[in-house]
Amino acid sequence: MAEPRPLRLLYFSWLRERIGTGEEELTPPPGTDTVAALVAWLRTRGPGYEAAFGTTAPVRCAINQDFAQPEATIAPGDEVAFFPPVTGG
């Protein structure tokens, strides 16, 4: 079986600051196939991740640059971005 391709993870705004990086490639455990499951796994990776995902502050997600809900499916090689509600304009 081929080596699974990692996810490309992007973090913006205060999520980037709390996690300490804006971009990384990670391969979550098998079965981590939704946004919600990915967030649950990320929270176990350290205090920065817990500070980013473990509060009541709303976090939005995009998969391959389209907005996605927590139940959305992720696949190996996807670009998954996490960020607060947008505040442009």
Partner: peptide
């Protein structure tokens, strides 16, 4: 255009 931009385009202000 400005209403949708403010809620659907990924910008963040600091």
């Amino acid at each position: 255009l400005i209403d949708w931009l403010k809620t659907k385009a990924p910008f963040w202000k600091k």
